[in-house]
Simulated scan of single mutants.
Amino acid sequence: MKKNQRHKLRQRMRAISLKDYKGRTMDSNDAATQTQQTSQWQDGIKVRREVLGDTYVTESLERSAGTESEALQAHITETVWGAVWTRPGLDRRSRSLLNIGMLVALNQHHELAIHLRGGLRNGLTREEIVESIIHATAYCGAPAGLAAMRVAQKVLDAESAAAGAL
């Protein structure tokens, strides 16, 4: 993505972040709320990029830019990444372990693959990832666990191959 395109994307995402959750632009007199949301979006995009990787996040934002999905990307960046992932009380490794278990339970394989990579960035080991899937399988059932392990194996193999190529 060219520098000019990134700048335009950031401007568009900031504009979206200044809308309330019903899609209406907030009153310009509400400067405190605008500052808070802008700050929360900035915190969220920073954490999101650190956990999921700059390339993945940029591609997600580019895919949604100018579409109906754009507002959802802004909302997720502000609320999930800016309000939840930045809370004190759990470190990123712990949050990644929780996400793995929840995504196994929900059978959300695409998101699982993304968060497995994020878990590795957050310091999880291959063994911890495998154990978290085994643990989730005990509560979610064998079909969910087996499907999750197939996703995990692909991600772990790809990450090992990429590391070997360096």
Rank of each mutant, 00 (worst) to 15 (best):
A83D: 02
A74G: 06
E78R: 12
T79H: 13
Q73N: 12
A65H: 14
I100Y: 00
L90Y: 05
V104S: 01
I114F: 07
A65Q: 15
L90H: 01
S64A: 14
R93D: 00
R63M: 13
A105K: 03
D43M: 08
R95V: 05
K46E: 09
H75M: 15
R95Y: 03
D43K: 05
L106P: 04
S69I: 14
Y56H: 09
S64C: 14
M102F: 12
Y56P: 14
E59D: 15
R87K: 05
H110M: 07
D43I: 08
I100G: 00
L106T: 02
L61N: 12
T55D: 15
L61A: 15
Q73H: 11
M102V: 06
V84R: 02
E50A: 10
D91S: 04
L103P: 01
V47T: 01
I45P: 06
N99M: 06
G66R: 09
H109N: 11
L90I: 01
H75P: 14
N107R: 09
Y56G: 11
D43L: 05
S96Y: 00
A105F: 04
N99Q: 08
T58C: 13
A83V: 08
V104E: 01
P88K: 13
E62A: 09
S96I: 01
R95N: 02
D43A: 07
G82T: 02
I114N: 05
R48D: 10
R48C: 04
S96V: 03
A71E: 13
H115E: 04
R92Q: 09
I114L: 08
L112E: 00
